[in-house]
Each structure stands twice: as C-alpha cells, then as structure tokens.
Design a protein around this nucleic acid. Structure first.
Length: 491
RNA sequence: GGCGCGUUCGUCUAGCGGUUUAGGACGCCGCCCUCUCAAGGCGGAGAUCACGGGUUCGAAUCCCGUACGCGCUACCA
C-alpha cells in the first residue's frame, strides 16, 4: 500500500527568510525522498495576505538552492501538479469546501469577529475546559443562509466536527497519538477573504499533489486530527505523518531571533559552508546509530531514515557548527578553496590588490588546517596580504633578545646568497647558520616569524618564508630590525 | 486553564530488559608531536539516566503517577 516511490513536500510560507528549522525540515524531507528514490516538491503557502513579504519567495528559493537541496517540482522547476503557489490554487480549495458543505461536513458561518471574541471571553469566564466555537451558524436554515448570502454578508467556512470521537494519528516518529474530538474546534477552512487556511489548503494540495509522507515540525501535531478528519470527510487516503522535534534556543525555548541567528542567510553571510550547515542540522535530531559525525550530502541520503529521528527537541549549539565548518574546510582541496578565498578577498580591504592563483594556493595550503572559516585566512594571516604594521608586544618581549639583530643580519646574509631558493634551501640555510653559531635554531625562527608576520603564531616558518619569497623576507627583516630597535631604544 | 509531545554528561547524542564501572562527539583541561599556532594522537574531568512508585531474578530501557520544559489552543502558518 505504501508507494515504493514516495513524494514529499517542503511547504514554507513566504514571510521573510528561511529559518534554520525550516532548513532542517526541508533537509529531512529531501533525505527521506532521495533515500527512497522518491520526489520532493516545493510548495509556497502564501495564503495569508497580511503576512506577505516582498521578495520573500525569491529569497527562500535562492537560499534553498544554495543549500544544495534540489527540488523535483516547484515554482522554479515546474511539474505536473502545479501551480505551486497556493494563492493560485483558490479554485481547488473552493471546490472541496463546497463539497464538504454539501456533505454536511462543513458549514458557512456568518458570525462577526466581535461575537467570536465575546464568546471566547464568556467561555473563559466560565472556566470551560476548552474554548470552542458554539456551532451557532450550523443552526441556520437553508433559507437564512441564502438570504445572508444574497445580502452579501461576509462568511467563513467551518469544519463540522462531531464531538465524542477519537481520532488516531499513526506518527512514524511518535507512534500512535490519540485526540478526542471534544477538544477540536470547528476550524475555519475558508477565511472571509476567500483564501483558505493552512488546514484546508494543506490537505487539498497534499492530496492533489499525491504526497505520500507529511514530514513537518512538531508544532503541527496538535492540528493533525483536523487534517485527518478532512481526509476522511473527503474520502481520501491519508499520507504517512512524521512530526519532527523542534530546534531550541540554549534556554530550551523554541529557536528564536532574540537569542542568535535563525536565518540561514545569516549563517551563509558569516562564512559557514553549506556542507557544514547541512551536516550540523542533519545531526540535530537524527543519527545513524554509529559514531560518524562528519557527513557529506550523499552519505546523509544513503543513511537517513525517519525511524532514527529523535522525539526530543535539540538545542542549536554553535560550537559544534564551528567545528564542523573547520572539518569541512579541511576536507576541501586547495583548488576548491581558491575561488572561495578570492570571493572573501573581494570583500576585504585587500580588494584592490592583485595576487596570483599560485600565491593564493600556497597561502591556502599553509593555513588550511588552522582555520574555521575561509575568511580566517585573511584575518588570521593578514601578513600574506600586507606587511605587518606593528609587532606583538608580548612576543617582542619574549623572542627579541639583545643578540637578535646581529643574528638576523647574518641570516639575511645567508639568505642573500641563495639563488631561486626552495623551501628546503631556506631551511638548510637557517639550520646551517644556527649550527655554525652553536645556537638553537629557535633563536632565529622566532624572531624571523615576528619580523615577517608581526605575530607569534602561524604556519611553519619555512612555509612562511618560502611563500613570501627571498626578497620580501629580507625586506621585512630589515624593516623589523629598524622598527623594533627603535621601540627598544625608546623604552 | 484544556489538549498533546517530551525529559541520558554544559550541548548534540548511543542505548531499544542482563554484554554498562552508561559509550561517542563538540566544548573544557592535561600530555605527546613540534619553530609557534593549529591539525592530529593519547588521556582526564563531566550523567545518582527529571523524580516517585510499580512489573521483573534483573530497568536508563516496560507500566503508572508527579514535576518540569515545550507545542497547540487565531479569519498565522
């Protein structure tokens, strides 16, 4: 009975940006579909005109594209089950709303917002266990309805819920969950502006688009019985439901803007790799049951299963994301990193400078294992892009001794003799000098590092020298010699 | 308030009745490697498995209750 090729959907509403929780929902849908050789559809749920945000759809699609989640059908790609904007599917919703009305499973309600408000307040005052619509308009005769209709009165369409019944949900993640219809309100299906609510639009579209599995956030679990009722009233086969645990703030509340970034584009701007974000978010609520933490998309597809999704919410912990970002950078080749570095350079203060690909590649090589973000190459090892403006006081104190200037003079002399030196040539020259002087090579290495970079840490000294080149190395040592001497004298 | 879901190291998690002195990862600390910083390797601290009852020869694992957290309770999704 289960379709061997599932069809799932990601159905965001365009209210601004793609939330990281949304990204994970989209991801799980994608992983599930691709693991089973199925299809994933992107559907835009734009039924709330008051929340419409200009450009949100474009932004959503752009961010989804960036993430590497590819949709088989949707606004961009098209497909046989369109249109993929709910605002363009109004006829469908009205058709089925009418069908429900004629079956007595739904009814028109002419109650004013004021009456509804008052009703709610009264029920609250009476401390009624549940606040529900009183089915007032269900008692209207056909003639009364006709009269109101022809008088042009505004109305909504409500689901006619019969109390005293048990609705069961078989959730892949949560097992069987039961609801008593006593607690279910006569949900509005069509708003007075003629647009459907989520509940109707969702069920109609999922059926029409032949969706087999509804994988969505836990916030929908409570309204699922309404959806099940709709499927039953319409005589449609229900999809399989899977309600995902929520993503949480460090204080365990639902992930929100106030406590950090929630928009995928924020993380993108900060320099997180899509591979790292995907990897991280995949692990928030799911694991394969082994010790693997590092995943590429294709491995996630291969190993993903809904059965292994957790029930409890997961705190979005930035530390682990940072680690994963570093891991994914380390797994990338220098050639893959090159265009990324160039892009970062374009947005840096070095945008006007020219660097050869070979130079940048050697810089990447040197910094590859020392960074969390590609941008770190520019920020942590700025000395590959400009001469140091000053020298770290602490390091000067620690490494710049009285005999240092003399030693560096000798070293420059040795380096000066080198013809087109390789990294090994520099090393041989420096170690040779140290040996002949009977000193530890550290007496040379540390001051040289300071002279070349201005700081006390970085790649191996011979890499640093070789990348900078003989001329620049000597020049920087000269500059340091004069500058650091000065500061010493001044003190 | 009502309904629903959840609860294992700070965080992400493994565990699906005995193999557990509860395993891994991030972070933290230490050691090794080493010219520094990383990366890597090794090790350490860190969880009375929310609490209380049961079931059982035996429970983190099954059942019930309590507490706490979260979600829903809109003409929002």
């Amino acid at each position: 009975m289960i379709n061997p090729k599932p069809r799932v959907r990601f159905a965001p509403s365009p209210t601004g940006y793609l939330h990281v929780g949304g990204l994970r929902t989209a991801l799980y849908n994608y992983l599930f579909a691709k693991n089973k050789g199925g299809e994933i559809i992107l559907r835009i749920e734009d039924t709330d005109r008051s929340r419409y945000v200009e450009g949100a759809v474009e932004n959503l699609i752009e961010t989804l594209n960036w993430s590497g989640i590819k949709f088989d059908e949707g606004p961009e790609t098209g497909g046989d089950y369109g249109p993929y904007f709910q605002s363009e599917r109004l006829d469908f919703y009205h058709k089925y709303a009418d069908e429900l009305i004629s079956k007595g499973k739904a009814y028109r309600c002419f109650c004013s917002p004021e009456r509804l408000q008052k009703l709610r307040e009264e029920q609250q005052k009476l401390k009624l266990p549940q606040i529900k619509y009183d089915k007032h308009c269900l008692n209207l005769t056909e003639e009364e309805v006709e009269a109101k209709l022809s008088a042009g009165e505004k109305y909504v369409v409500r689901l006619n819920v019969q109390p005293g019944q048990i609705v069961k949900i078989d959730d892949v993640i949560r097992g069987t969950v039961e609801f008593n219809t006593d607690n279910i309100d006569d949900q509005i299906l069509i708003k007075s502006d003629g647009f459907p609510t989520y509940h109707l639009a969702n069920v109609v579209d999922d059926h029409l688009m032949k969706i087999t599995h509804v994988i969505r956030g836990e916030e929908w679990l409570s309204s699922t019985p309404k959806h099940i009722l709709l499927y039953e009233f319409l005589g449609w086969e229900k999809p399989v439901f899977a309600h995902l645990p929520l993503l949480l703030n460090p204080d365990k509340s639902k992930l929100s803007k106030r406590q950090g970034d929630v928009a995928v584009e924020d993380y993108r701007k900060k320099g997180y790799l899509k591979e790292a974000l995907i990897n991280f978010v995949a692990l928030l609520g799911w694991n394969a049951g082994d010790d693997q933490e590092f995943y590429q998309m294709d491995e996630l597809i291969e190993k993903f299963s809904l059965e292994r999704v957790n029930k409890a919410g997961a705190v979005f912990n930035i530390e682990k994301l940072n680690w994963l970002n570093g891991e994914h950078i380390r797994h990338k080749s220098v050639d893959e990193l090159l265009p990324m570095l160039k892009e970062e350079l374009k947005n840096s203060k070095y945008a006007e400078n020219q660097y050869s690909d070979d130079y940048l590649k050697s810089v990447i090589e040197a910094m590859h294992e020392r960074i969390t973000f590609v941008r770190d190459i520019i920020e942590k090892s700025f000395y590959f892009f400009e001469r140091p403006q000053n020298y770290d006081e602490k390091i000067v104190k620690k490494r710049w001794k009285e005999d240092t200037p003399g030693l560096l003079e000798k070293l420059m002399e040795e380096f000066g003799k080198l013809e087109n030196p390789s990294k090994e040539d520099f090393e041989k020259a420096m170690r040779g000098l140290a040996e002949s002087l009977g000193i530890g090579v550290g007496k040379l290495i540390h001051p040289v590092r300071l002279a070349l970079s201005g700081v006390g840490q970085g790649p191996g000294i011979f890499d640093l020298i070789h990348i900078l080149g003989k001329e620049e190395t000597i020049e920087r040592i000269k500059i340091a010699l004069s500058k650091i001497k000065h500061s010493q004298e001044e003190n």
